[in-house]
Design a protein around this nucleic acid. Sequence first.
RNA 1: GCUGGUAUAGUGUAGUGGUCCAUCAUGACGGGUUCUCGAUCCGUCGACCCGGGUUCAAAUCCCGGUACCAGCACCA
Length: 504
Amino acid sequence: MDHIRQLLSEEAPEALEKRVKERREGLKPLEKTDKVILRFAPNPNGPMTLGHSRGVIINSEYSKMYDGEVILRFDDTDTKRKPPEIWAYKQIEEEYEWLTGKTPERIVFASDRMEIYLQHAEEDILKQNSYVCTCTAEEFKILRDSKETCPCRNLDASTHHERWNRMNDPNGGWDDGAAVVRIKTDLSLPNPALRDWPALRIQTSEHPRVGTTYRVWPLLDYQSAIEDYLQGVTHIIRGKDLMDSTRKQTLLYELRGWKYPETMYWGRVKVHEFGGFSTSGMKADILDGKFTGWNDPRLPTIAALRERGFSPDALRAFWIELGLNQKDISVSMKSIESHNSKVIEKTTRRVSFVSGKHTTLTLNMGEKWPTEELLIPSHPDNSAMGNRIWPAPKDGDKILVETEDISDEFRLKEFSNVNWSNEILETDGFQRSDRRPIVHWLLKDHVQPATLSIPEGDEINNQKGMIELGKYTVGDVLQLERVGFARITEISENSEIKLVYLHE
RNA sequence: GCUGGUAUAGUGUAGUGGUCCAUCAUGACGGGUUCUCGAUCCGUCGACCCGGGUUCAAAUCCCGGUACCAGCACCA
């Protein structure tokens, strides 16, 4: 050891210096940060999922770090397989604001920018960066796999321009699938995915925003490449499933003499409780009636998480903690819940809820409660939140407790020690004087009906019960004592309260 | 099959050649405190995929395996 120390002091004295290693907090710094323009580009074929929120949060956090901008761009160029939902645009916009606390600096609709894309496409054809191919997908795949040239590729430029016009002509006799515009690449490229990749295709199905104005629509790789350039995007952060997209687009940028943005990737995320996040899959299940809607508490959508009472701060903390890396990860909701508890715990009022599995007991008070009212703190550590005011329990009053909580001796929280026998609860001192278990309870004359819906996998467990009488508003998040956090989703005419369970 | 990517405790994460018998969080377990099974405090458990190489020194660099993921859609 001393020998090494000796050697080091001669050869590498800096290695002996104490180096302060601090744990890096938050996201890794970006490269090239003089100007930062980012984009988040969802497909509005449904509202946001938990997966989308990663993109929103990572992009907006980087934007905050470098005083940059985020463009919210609706990539709505597929009307067939992933048809845009006209309401989803607005909802995604709102969800973006909810998650980040601000509006996106710019909003772009791909479907509004069709003229521009088509102009660029024509330009690429005239410059022979691309060509119109009429081979079928199967035929082309065979050629591509053997690195062979497709018969269309070497036709002269004017033929390709004629073909381009024909693609756009409703009377040209070409329908969906008849022709496609391909970007010319080196066919000897080792990665088969990149060889003469398709850029635009004919799509005659109606678009919910622009109808049938356009026949030829760009594919993601083309539309996104052109738009990123036009918007001056400096950094692209995307899933690593889009790595080949980066490579294709870089080839196009080279043809056009443009410089491709810095690109970073995240890996695949699964949540133990949900699996993946497939918008199309959820859409089908909702239509089948398996779920009540996009905000069904069993679904991993932002709408559902909001409905249940998750805080955007918790989601933000969660994604920042995971950071930006290319690992495929599988996380537990517990991790998000833990963040959420930290955020909401200090400001959430406590309330007593007794489930349907309860027993009514009669109070036998050996001693009168000294005042007219029973004051119970709304929060154990935050007196500023005030008290819940219950009428003082009297001899003969009926008390509700969870059946499973009943034992010979227990304590009604914030009220009295009691001894149980034959459906009678005999008070045994108001002061807490021993270690008997503390139990939440209700005064039978001071309750209103409530149903707590607990998502359990594919099922929903609806627990009918009673909640203490109080002032409630839809949207309130409460902590049901000894049960967990829950959010009020509905208060019906007969004052029944509907709650959805959040977490412990 | 071709192409690319990733591998650190149960789950995430820090770490870019030397204070690393490895960080932090979460989890599980045990305890203190508390009028919630909440919160809080303390403690315990537990990891560098494998094999070579370079080097005085490797989680970190190189090579080779292995595993997992993704792309090869006229989807995004």
